[in-house]
Design a binder for these strands. Structure first.
Lengths: 235, 235
DNA sequence: CGAACTCACTGACCTAGTCCAGAAGGATGT
DNA sequence: ACATCCTTCTGGACTAGGTCAGTGAGTTCG
């Protein structure tokens, strides 16, 4: 086991974090300060920080600094439980912010996911979700317009699943989803305060209503240190 | 949209890859060669390569070079289908290599996952799985020894699920799993030809047999560009 | 023929800086 | 009270190199 400069820095920071000297959301010293502290260059410090970021121990906010990661949220994409409810069960505080709503024709990506042709009118709802004040999840919901008349006049900051049931009598009886480690598209990076192209965990979900008809799809982009997907075949 | 040196390099390489000029597993020119090609430094080139790696477009083998990623494998951790069978269905060639087998007392990590105390004897089987000749998956299986007498004398390069059923009459009726973006531990990095601390997708699975008893657990470490997790609530 | 050795090549790791754009907080003017 | 400016601090993007250890192909030797 070689004791490189890099592993020294990683070890030192990791130790302080796990020992609880640095607590969740605490800001680390700046890259410049750390490079002086360890008598090395900013590049080496940055390599160490990126490595810890990969481990999920720290995260960064663009041009704001590096911070200690809170514990991961346990998330089951198959469960029908609402986001705010799920977060509260884990003793954390959730917030949802509506970013934009628009009605368009399905673009290539959406047409494929929704299994419709490109002339189909759809609604796109973009929302940003925070846990304990930190933006961790960018969600793009994509509804087949025909099935949701007047949905845009509703309150869209809560659970859409709930809205579907209350206003339209649609119950999600089946969902299909993909999980893929990916890079943040620029509009997502902006909303999550990531640098363009940083890593995110992308989850694409498709929901079907009780009669088996495809109803909507969803693109979730998670900060990779914020979440742990957790599934049990027996509910 | 700023046209940085970085995005030029990324764009140029990505274009050549998607246009099919560079095909799966093809080796890219060395970092030094690329930095001359784009009249820039190795650091800038490396930043661009790391960004493409994050997107899953290319991957690296330690001190060997950078290569074009093949398409992702669709993987459903809930399905009972065997690895080789699953890979073959996607027209790819799978190989499994047995790395090590040992019988020990449960360490902290295993004891927690298996819900046993630390004096329980367990068997640990380490295997390396390749697709189209490329090592993409490191698997650590961890069996409760009491339930599997004589299992170490069997052929362990095939499907363990199959072995459980044929030799012990155990059927997996329930499984629980977690997915988490993580960094490769050193023994995993070595087997997968990754640099220490590079990103992997870690999947921890726990299997229960027909009487509901916890039987074994499994730690899977995937190269993150090699896989896409894909789950349908209606099998 | 097969094992041991050599050596060029590769990315990993490192130094020592510069310049820039966005974030954030404080001072200032109305 | 509330914008606006201004200054400082941050990471992001870049230049121009060097050292080192592991890889792999080719060569040499028994």
């Amino acid at each position: 086991m070689p004791m490189t400069q890099l592993s020294k820095i990683k070890g030192s920071l990791r130790e302080q974090i796990t020992a609880g000297e640095l607590t969740a959301q605490h800001k680390l010293p700046s890259e410049r300060a750390l490079s002086e502290l360890f008598s090395t260059t900013r590049i080496t410090v940055k390599d160490a920080l990126v490595a810890l970021e990969t481990e999920g121990v720290i995260y960064r906010e663009e041009r704001r600094g590096w911070f200690v990661s809170p514990p991961r949220i346990q998330y089951n994409p198959l469960s029908r439980s609402h986001f705010h409810q799920m977060i509260q069960q884990q003793n954390r505080v959730a917030k949802t912010q509506l970013l934009s709503v628009r009605s368009v024709m399905a673009s290539q990506q959406y047409a494929v996911a929704l299994e419709v042709d490109r002339l189909t009118p759809i609604h796109i709802v973009e929302r940003l979700r925070s846990i304990d004040g930190r933006a961790v999840l960018f969600v793009e919901n994509c509804l087949i317009a025909r099935l949701f008349p007047g949905v845009l006049e509703q309150d869209l900051t809560g659970s859409l699943t709930y809205l579907y049931q209350e206003k339209f009598n649609y119950v999600t009886t089946r969902s299909r989803f993909d999980v893929v480690p990916s890079a943040a598209p620029s509009h997502v990076a902006k909303a999550l305060n990531l640098a363009a192209g940083q890593q995110v965990l992308k989850i694409c979900r498709v929901n079907y209503k009780q009669d088996g008809e495809l109803m909507d799809c969803e693109f979730e982009y998670w900060r990779p240190d914020a979440v742990q997907i957790s599934i049990d075949s027996h509910g």
